[in-house]
Amino acid sequence: MLNLNNLLLQVIRLLLTFVIIFLTLIIFGVSPFDVFESILYGSLGSYSKFIRTLIVWTPLCLSALALIYTFSAGMWNIGIEGQIIMGAVGATFVARSFLGDDLISPYLQILMAMFFGGFWGLICAILKIKGKVHEIFSGLGLDFVASGIVIYLIIGPWKRAGIASTSGTDIFHKASWVPTVGDSNFPIFLIILVLFLYIFSLIIFRYTSLGIRLKATGINTFATNRFNFSSEKYIVFSFLIAGAIAGIAGFSQSSGAYHKLVPSVSGGFGFLSILIVLICSRNIYFTFIVSFLFAALIVGGSQLQIKLGLDHSLIGIIQATFVLSWLVLQKIEIEKITYKQISKMFAK
């Protein structure tokens, strides 16, 4: 199955992508080696930095995993941001209730986050099927509705004691935080959850008819109806499970990263994970790795300001350039270009 020629071409494409990123950085007058050195140091340089990377990585790879389901069904789930936000709202709902100081709080939070996120994904799916609303527009709309809900909750019913400000709710009770190992902040609970969900998804996509039908829905909706199974059912399923997984990402943000509900609780990770899935073209293994690379870029990027005096938006530029040039290079037949150029070189 493995086509060596194809693999070689992909490696050449990857190298070209890095050349483009390096050139972009040089155009901005920044040394690429300095940048990547400080990113590497800033993300993996010490134990605490590594843990920060892990805490960024969990929501990223969870929402990327969620997107694999919807992309497999051929749907553009831009509503992922809203699903993350609603997941965080669900988690906060439990954390602020009378169960907030109980040891079972994190587990209930996950259930509630899955429920809220899944519900938000379900709305998108129902709008798609019943209302024939393009999922991009409904997703975009629901993103902003969700952020409106969060802002309302933070200023209104869940405001901090005394003052109403947009800086967030009160910090959760310690029992509602994501369980960690002993005194260190190692988020063992989240890591196990991520591994479990990834293996679960691998099995679904590899060994079950569910996964195959999901992919078939994405490839050709008309054909699936001929094969006597309703593609609509699978679109609903993909949005439901994507919303639930994105909800867990929201839980990881509110109870693992911030320990409270803040207006920008999704941190833009939903949109970022769309970039990740675009690069990985729905490959689960690649998504696992690339989302870690992106998390390392984000955490390492905070070092850029301190060490090199560069704005952290450089990281966004690197990520987006990477995705864009990778996508464009996929569509360019490199082998033809090189053959032509080689023949031209020999002609001279």
């Binding site: 901005f28 949109f271 970039l275 938006s313 450089l314 530029i317 990520q319 987006a320 995705v323 996508l327």
Partner: peptide, 14 residues
Amino acid sequence: GFVLTILCINLSNF
């Protein structure tokens, strides 16, 4: 279009 959005926002900030 989506990737360009992310790229342009970051470029403008930088």
